[in-house]
């Protein structure tokens, strides 16, 4: 009986269940970080928001939702031993995540260097433009950092998958990365309306 219990506790499914619980505890701790940022938005902006172009945020939102779909596709594929679809979907997810990250950095933030080689930020709004700039850059920056880490994790996963790791029975690494990626998507689902849709648009002094 003791041997049976030991075997059960050493099983992949048992370990995965514990790891899964750990992942969700990590998400809860992350929620405090993003929740704090969200509270600062509503506390500092109230019923207003900076008057910003709407097209780019909408496009990058669609890109991120699409990436979540491909991540889910990758997870379903490996759960059914379809390695080709798994690897292809992972690459598409990483590509879409990179497009999102670069979209935030170069289009939304206007990240560039001027003639003197100095870093220039702010197509529409600067980080120093009072509470509007600080909150917008803080929230999008923290989220973009998570997107970047997600893309790196996906690429690590792709590399391992290419070498033959993971199977229909044992793929907790894929599951964990997929849940992380969907969590990043979930955060953006909340941040997008909070930053770009809710509130009366006001001039932000830039």
């Amino acid at each position: 009986m003791a041997a049976l219990t030991e075997t059960h506790h050493e099983s992949y499914a048992w370990k995965s269940q514990n790891n899964r619980l750990g992942m969700w505890l990590f998400f809860i701790s992350e929620s405090f970080l993003f929740g704090g940022l969200l509270v600062s938005r509503f506390f500092l902006w109230g019923g207003t928001r900076p008057d910003l172009p709407q097209l780019v945020p909408l496009i990058i939102t669609v890109v991120l939702l699409l990436s979540s779909f491909y991540m889910n596709r990758a997870e379903v594929a490996i759960a059914h031993d379809d390695r080709r679809t798994f690897l292809r979907s992972l690459l598409i997810t990483a590509l879409l995540g990179t497009i999102f990250f670069l979209g935030v950095l170069f289009v939304e933030w206007g990240f560039s260097f001027n003639e003197q080689g100095k870093l220039v930020l702010g197509n529409h709004i600067h980080p120093t433009d009072g509470v509007y700039g600080a909150v917008l850059y803080g929230m999008t920056g923290m989220h973009a950092l998570h997107v970047l880490s997600g893309v790196i994790l996906i690429l690590i996963l792709w590399n391992l998958g290419r070498k033959g790791h993971f199977s229909a029975k044992e793929h907790f690494g894929v599951e964990a990365t997929a849940i992380y990626w969907h969590y990043v998507d979930l955060v953006w689902v909340v941040f997008y309306p909070a930053l770009y849709l809710i509130g009366t648009p006001v001039a932000h002094g830039h």
Binding site: S68, F69, A77, A79, H80, L197
Partner: peptide, 27 residues
């Protein structure tokens, strides 16, 4: 089973797309 999993993904993506458009109009 795998095809059913893919189909669910497509349906959820469609739902998220529709809700995003509706959210935009609500704004």
């Amino acid at each position: 089973k795998r095809k059913a999993g893919f189909r669910t993904g497509v349906m959820v993506l469609g739902l998220l797309g529709v809700l995003t458009v509706l959210e935009f109009f609500a704004a």
